[in-house]
Amino acid sequence: MAGEDRHQGPHTIEFHDVTVAYGRRPVLWNIDLAIDAPGLFAIIGPNGAGKSTLLKAALGLVPLAGGTVTFFGKPFADVRRRIGYVPQRETVDWDFPVSVMDVVLMGTYPRLGWFRRPGPAERDCARACLGRVGLADVADRQIGRLSGGQQQRVFLARALAQQADVYFLDEPLAGVDARSQDQIFRVLSELRGEGRLVVVVHHDLRTAAEWFDGVALVDMRLVASGPTASVLTSDNLRRTYAGPLDVLDEIGLAVEQARRTR
């Protein structure tokens, strides 16, 4: 981000010429992006721009068609334990028969390794993480009996239990109530204060300008990246959101709004 000149050694995360394709359809082209800890960094772009894919590519969840991603100068597999992940909330079945505590404990599994069960130390860690997101009193509840914002905070607590240095969050504020949003941002700011890097796939430009130190604008390719104030210019935003499809979307929205006001 800012002050690349004073930067020493490898970047916290470095995307080098990353290209990703689903089948033959390319979704990300030649992404070059370096992000450094500490900070709150947002990846922003229109629907279908490949934001989540960029994140999954970094985590080795989708194969790269070209390029490399490194963390602290090393491939992901070597530093996996230092990376925490919050998937999109809709990717799991919330009717699954597990308690809030069970889910948060999953963050400690990599430390435990094969077959070892969580013990008192892991439970204490999980309880502390739940406390940080304000959910200590629902630890024993089945996860389906939570609001959307609470579910999102459970996922955040699980990531905290990973005790990572870099966090990836995929749309952590989608469909989240105001109280949960504040709590989530507070925790993310704390993580930055502890010297960690938090990378968030985000959709809301207003909160982005307010909360994030750095931003990357993505629309299949990298449109711009850097400190928030210098990236979120109207020119950059127009370039990011002005694909032919989005023009149609805007017309659609305008029509819908007109219908509503009538």
Binding site: K56, G60, I83, Y85, P87, T91, Y109, P110
Partner: peptide, 8 residues
């Protein structure tokens, strides 16, 4: 997805 990302 979380399991894969955390190394399982």
């Amino acid at each position: 997805a979380f399991a894969a990302a955390s190394g399982w």
